[in-house]
Nucleic acid binder design. Structure first.
Lengths: 202, 202
DNA sequence: CTCCCCCTATGACATCTGTCATCGCCGGCC
DNA sequence: GGCCGGCGATGACAGATGTCATAGGGGGAG
C-alpha cells in the first residue's frame, strides 16, 4: 500500500528534486505539488493525499496556516513541516496546529522518507535538536498585548505609529514596550524584538 | 564530455535531491558535495570540478566568499550561485567576485542543468528577475562609513556601543546615522537598516 | 592651486524613548 | 467579598536619539 504525498515548497528546484527522490521509494507516491500556501490547500482538496509535506515559508500562507486549514477540512490527511531554519516558536505553533512531523532541511531524503512513513502510520516525529531548542526556550513571559506591541515594533516604527496601528495611547505603548524589554533582559526594544524572534515568542 | 560539478548547500535534503537529479543528466557528473563554505573549498581543491554550484547562505563562509577563494585558487573552475531569496546586493557582490551564474531556487532542475552547461561553456547567466531588481535598486547612495555604521546598528545596539565597535566618537556615529537615514528617506535608523538590507546596500 | 567631497569631531537643541508611580476597570480565584 | 493580574491610561523625568551648524584635515579632479 502506497502513501500518497502532497509536496508544497515555493522553491521549484527543491520541490522537483524532492519529488523525484521520494518517487524512487516504491511505497511513496507524490500525487501533487504546490508552490504556495493557497495552492497547497487547493491541491490537497483535489487530490486528498495521505500526508502533506509543507515548507514553513511559502507565499500566501505559511506551512502552519496550511496545516491548520487541512486539519479542519481533511481530517484523514496528516501534515508535516519541513523548514530551513527552525525557530522554537514555529515548532510550538506547528504542534498546536496538529502537525505530526517537524524536520529541518538538513536531514537526508532517505530519512525524510522514513519520517513520512512514520507520520502516515500515526506516530509523531520532531527533530531532536529543534525539540531541545524549544524546550530550553521555554514559555513566553510576555502577555498578549506585550507580544502584540513588540510585533508592531519589529520594523522599526516609532511609538506614535505603533500606537496608531494598535489603537492604543502612545503612553500605553511605551509601558508595554518597557515591560517587554525588561522581561526579556534587553537593552532596548529593538534587541528585545530580536531576542523574542529568536525564541519564537513573536 | 561530461561536466564535473561540485555541489555546496548546507541543507542535506536539497543537496542530496539535487545531486540525484543532476546525476540523471548524462553529461553532468556530481563529483563532490559540501555542507559548508570551508568544506566546499576543501572539496574543490581535492576534486577540481569544472563548475561549482554554491548556495549563498552556508555556515563558515557564504557562497560569494567561496567563489572568491576558488577564483584565486582554481581559475579553471567556473562558479555559480544558487539562492533562496536573492537580494540585489548579493548579485552585485557575486558578479564582482567573478561568479558566472546567479539563479534563484525557484527554477527547475532541468533549467539548472542547462545553466550549468552554459556556464561551463563560458557564458554567463543571471536570473532576469533578479537582474531587474538589481538594476532598479541602483547604486548605494551611502558612503563607506555610513554603510559601515549602519551595519553595526543592525542589531539594535545603542549609539555608544556602535561608536565603541567602530572606534568613532558617539557624535560622529550620530552624524553618519542621521545622514544615512536622510539619504534613504527613512524615519529612523532601524527602518533605514531594513531599507538598506532590502536593496542590498549593507 | 583650488574646489569639492569624505572623514572625524564638537556643541546645541528638539524630540523620542525608557522608566516609574499611580490610577481605574474588569475578570478570575480563593 | 477580597486579592491579584492584565489592560488601558496619564504625568513626570532622565537619558538616548535625530538634526543642524560648524570646523579642520586629507585626497582626488579640474
Amino acid at each position: 500500500m502506497t502513501v500518497r504525498v502532497l509536496l508544497a515548497d515555493d522553491e521549484h528546484l527543491i520541490r522537483g528534486a524532492l519529488a523525484a527522490l521520494l518517487g524512487l521509494e516504491d511505497d511513496l507516491e507524490v500525487v501533487a505539488e504546490a508552490a504556495s500556501g493557497p495552492e497547497a490547500i487547493a491541491m490537497a482538496r483535489a487530490h486528498r493525499p495521505d500526508v502533506a509535506v509543507l515548507d514553513l515559508q511559502m507565499p500566501g500562507a505559511d506551512g502552519v496556516r496550511v496545516a491548520t486549514a487541512l486539519r479542519a477540512e481533511l481530517p484523514g490527511c496528516q501534515t508535516m513541516i519541513v523548514t530551513g531554519h527552525g525557530r522554537p516558536g514555529h515548532l510550538k505553533r506547528a504542534l498546536a496546529a496538529g502537525v505530526r512531523g517537524f524536520v529541518p532541511k538538513t536531514v537526508s531524503a532517505q530519512r525524510l522518507a522514513e519520517i513520512i512513513r512514520a507520520v502516515h502510520a500515526g506516530s509523531r516525529y520532531v527533530d531532536p535538536e529543534l525539540a531541545a531548542d524549544a524546550i530550553s526556550a521555554g514559555d513566553s513571559p510576555l502577555t498578549a498585548r506585550e507580544a502584540e506591541v513588540l510585533e508592531l515594533a519589529a520594523d522599526g516604527a516609532p511609538v506614535a505609529e505603533i500606537a496608531r496601528r494598535a489603537s492604543l495611547s502612545p503612553g500605553t505603548v511605551r509601558n508595554y514596550l518597557s515591560s517587554a524589554v525588561s522581561k526579556l533582559g534587553a537593552e532596548n526594544r529593538h534587541t528585545a524584538v530580536r531576542l523574542a524572534r529568536e525564541r519564537g515568542w513573536v
